[in-house]
């Protein structure tokens, strides 16, 4: 079957199987920043935004995304740059496999709740697991990003 998606502002049409998940369709079509981690919504690595809301693309059927707006990190590069700078400053980078998904989730949080407290940041991001950093430096970086009005 065919579906029409708007990915990072660009209209795309893909030929898909009815049981294909959004993650697989995106990777097949070279949106390589979207990655597989756990297969069962437990890790957050496959996060993309659908209509600006973070969702686990490993478990969303592509067929249900007809005419939806999909955002990957490539679609919000300016914001990601800003966040990445704070990650660098605070030593919050490690392997980075999850970083694009984390950036998208943080961006969605900013859209929903710019004045989020650190507790709200943790709650919003609890579905984004990280095995490298111990999380603390990430929280410091995210708080700085949210406070950055530039």
């Amino acid at each position: 079957m065919k579906i029409n998606l708007k990915i990072n502002g660009q209209s795309r049409q893909f030929l898909i199987e009815p049981n294909e998940y959004l993650l697989d369709v995106l990777r097949k079509n070279d949106y390589l920043s979207v990655r597989r981690g756990c297969d069962n919504t437990s890790c957050g690595v496959c996060t993309v935004l659908i209509d600006n809301k973070p969702v686990p693309s490993c478990s969303v059927l592509a067929a249900r995304c007809e005419n939806k707006e999909i955002t990957t990190v490539e679609g919000v590069e300016k914001e990601v740059e800003k966040l990445a700078r704070y990650f660098g400053e605070l030593g919050a980078d490690q392997c980075g496999y999850c970083n694009p998904s984390m950036a998208l989730t943080v961006y969605a949080l900013k859209l929903e709740n710019k004045n989020a407290s650190i507790e709200e940041v943790k709650e919003y991001l609890v579905g984004n697991l990280c095995r490298c950093t111990g999380y603390i430096a990430q929280h410091e970086a995210i708080m700085k990003y949210l406070g950055d009005e530039s």
């Binding site: 919504t41 957050g44 686990p56 478990s59 989730t105 579905g127």
Partner: peptide
Amino acid sequence: IKSIMGVQVRNV
């Protein structure tokens, strides 16, 4: 509801 998985899952 808030105690269920992450925001991503709760969005779907």
